[in-house]
Nucleic acid binder design. Structure first.
Lengths: 248, 248
DNA sequence: TGTTTGTTTATTGCAGACAGATTTGTACGA
DNA sequence: TCGTACAAATCTGTCTGCAATAAACAAACA
């Protein structure tokens, strides 16, 4: 009988980091929230050491910000950081589309078309919620990203999306008109990928990404701030606002 | 008189991460090397806790790999990972050139041309070492990256370059012919940026990056492995080869 | 001589403890 | 009532100690 690993069933720092990341991207933790090492240690039944390591991992992914002697906070992107992040995402998204058009397999192409059909159904249905549509677009781009076959770029765009996607991504799919416009863009992109036309796919991806950002920004400027804030209690404006910057 | 911070003059985890990163990118630590928490703690006069946090930071930057119960190792990229990394870098590099062509300021343009002149001098001089030329290209692209005004992409390309640049970057500048070809590419790129032609700058950047990678790959395939290895003792082939993969 | 097994040592990973700093709560005075 | 000063409590950051594991070494055996 080989000795059981003592860490069996125990949360390691990467486990904790994954879990906290999930809490952040799901909205359970909101930007600016304080991450107490004591609370997290208690929640995961470990000591504060592994929690600190997990927070360091999330720090270098720009999901949390650690202020000396203050602790860790869920990172809230400033407006200008949203801009540069979306700009970066535009380039990477275009790269993924271009690569996918070069490399997508038969079965992946079938998957992509299946996800596109789902998007078509949701775009046509007035009762579709923004969240439903957003999840469907996630499924679509996941197939696309896999088809690009570059895990490095895949991780980069995932990181970029996490930082900004969940408060912002909704906005470009708020109305049915927007969802139909999004679907149309995805349809054209799928056609370019089907035709294995990297140039066209890349250009389309870039334009559709920029258009989505523009729609979301317009909407964000148009509607009252309260609608953008997460439901529930508002953030105190005087709260210390950690800024994203290189960790190293 | 406000109380002095007790951490004054003490190495914090980010400090340690920066220092270790410097040791890695400078070649003082080589891929596959074991990073002992005890040794590092002694070197920085701290306990092993902060060292562990620093290693976690480097882990998520793909500079080190932490194997459970084995410790931290300087990450050595597999051949296929070099490929995807250079591919990713090609896209980002093109993006930076495109953005720089849009946004470069007068003074930055002057800086860029100054760095280009330095490259011209070094490319013309037969006695130039690959390292000299490499450092000059660093200076050039640093100006370019700054002109792009997207800190997010800047950090991304810096991370991508660190992982692969120092063993690989030399190779595309090994001979004077290569350096002259590199210089010519930089000259054309500078012209495109000067003309504020983002499209041309981006296309040029992409082609020159791909050409550089092709040159380096050719050279790597042509010359004996011993020349590529760092000088000094060879890596034992049986050593555990940590692979890069998403940390979270 | 080569292989396998047992032992010893070194290191990792984590829990707990300690010093310092920040924050919170309270009492006091204007 | 509001602001300030002080004190207690809380939390962060680090250090030390301990259990568990992996590597290195030595001895026994084929």
């Amino acid at each position: 009988m080989k000795s059981e690993n003592v860490n069996e069933g125990r949360f390691t720092p990467p486990d904790i980091a994954r879990a906290v990341r999930g809490m952040i991207v799901s909205g359970e933790l909101r930007p600016g929230d304080h991450l107490s090492t004591i609370d997290l240690a208690a929640r995961f039944c470990v000591s504060r050491g592994p929690v600190r390591e997990a927070l360091r991992l999330l720090e270098s992914r720009a999901l949390v910000r650690i202020l000396p002697r203050k602790g860790a906070f869920v990172n809230s992107l400033q407006d200008d950081e949203v801009g540069v992040t979306m700009e970066a995402r535009e380039f990477i998204f275009a790269a993924m589309a271009e690569l996918a058009a070069q490399r997508i397999s038969r079965s992946q192409l079938a998957d992509l078309r299946r996800e596109l059909q789902q998007l078509a159904r949701l775009a046509a249905a007035p009762a579709t919620t923004p969240n439903e549509f957003k999840l469907a677009t996630y499924a679509f781009v996941s197939v696309l990203y896999g088809a690009a076959r570059n895990p490095r770029l895949h991780q980069i765009i995932r990181d970029l999306s996490e930082g900004v996607g969940h408060a912002f991504g909704h906005l470009s799919m708020a109305t049915q008109e927007m969802r139909q416009a999004e679907y149309e863009a995805y349809r054209l992109l799928t056609n370019a990928v089907t035709d294995r036309d990297p140039r066209r796919a890349g250009d389309l991806a870039r334009r559709m990404h920029a258009a989505g950002v523009a729609r979301a920004t317009q909407l964000q400027a148009a509607i009252p701030q309260a609608v953008i804030e997460f439901k529930g209690k508002r953030r105190r404006s005087g709260r210390s606002e950690p800024r994203t910057q290189p960790v190293l």
